[in-house]
Simulated assay, not measured.
Amino acid sequence: MREPRSQAERDATTMESMYVLLTALALAGGIFMTVASPALIFDWVQADARRCLIIAAKVTAVSAALIRLVQGLWRR
């Protein structure tokens, strides 16, 4: 059996988990803005293409965030 973790170890785990969460959110936001920026900024993107770009940005951002969360928390 393992001995109980100290308060410092529990705090370190909490901080690392929060870091993983925040970096996943930042990554998702950056990817969303990168993929969706043509649809959000330029008027030459038509309605169907705009909708497709925004959907692709959402899917890509969520996928990247989930991959980052799993990758970061798996090591714990």
Results as ranks from 00 to 15, higher is better:
Gly72Pro: 04
Gln71Ser: 13
Ala47Ser: 14
Met33Asp: 04
Leu27Cys: 03
Val20Ser: 01
Glu9Asp: 15
Trp44Ser: 15
Leu27Lys: 02
Trp74Asp: 10
Val20Asn: 00
Leu69Val: 12
Met1Ile: 14
Trp74Ala: 11
Gly72Val: 01
Arg5Leu: 14
Ala24Cys: 05
Leu66Asn: 09
Phe32Lys: 02
Ala36Asn: 03
Thr34Phe: 15
Ala28Ile: 03
Thr13Lys: 07
Ser37Glu: 02
Trp44Thr: 15
Ala57His: 00
Val62Ala: 14
Asp11Val: 06
Ala39Gly: 10
Gln71Gly: 13
Lys58Cys: 07
Met33Ile: 03
Ala36Glu: 04
Leu22Asn: 08
Arg68Asn: 15
Phe42Thr: 14
Arg75Phe: 05
Ser63Ile: 00
Ala47Phe: 13
Thr13Cys: 04
Ala61Gly: 03
Leu66Pro: 03
Phe42Lys: 11
Ser17Arg: 08
Arg50Gly: 02
Met1Glu: 11
Val59Asp: 05
Ala56His: 06
Ile54His: 04
Ala65Phe: 00
Ala36Leu: 03
Ala39Thr: 05
Val45Asn: 02
Arg75Tyr: 07
Ala28Ser: 06
Ile41Met: 15
Met18Asn: 11
Met18Tyr: 13
Thr60Glu: 00
Leu22Pro: 05
Val35Ser: 00
Trp44Tyr: 15
Ile55Val: 12
Trp74Ser: 10
Thr13Trp: 02
Arg50Glu: 08
Leu22Gln: 09
Val45Thr: 04
Ala64Asn: 04
Leu66Cys: 08
Gln7Arg: 09
Ala65Leu: 03
Ile54Met: 14
Ser6Phe: 08
Ala57Asp: 01
Cys52Gly: 11
Ala47Asp: 13
Trp44Gln: 15
Ile67Lys: 07
Gly29Asp: 00
Pro38Gln: 02
Leu21Ile: 06
Met1Thr: 11
Leu27Ser: 05
Ser6Gln: 08
Thr34Val: 14
Ala8Val: 07
Ala12Glu: 11
Ala65Cys: 06
Leu27Val: 02
Ala26Asp: 05
Ala8Gly: 05
Ser6Ala: 11
Ser37His: 08
Gln46Glu: 15
Ala24Ile: 01
Ile67Gln: 07
Arg5Asp: 08
Arg75Trp: 09
Ala65Gln: 02
Val62Glu: 12
Leu73Arg: 08
Trp74Gly: 09
Phe32Ala: 00
Pro4Met: 08
Ala24His: 00
Thr14Cys: 01
Asp43Val: 10
Met33Trp: 08
Met15Ile: 11
Leu69Lys: 04
Thr23Gln: 12
Val35Asp: 01
Asp11Thr: 10
Asp11Phe: 05
Ala47Glu: 15
Tyr19Met: 09
Leu22Phe: 12
Asp43Gln: 10
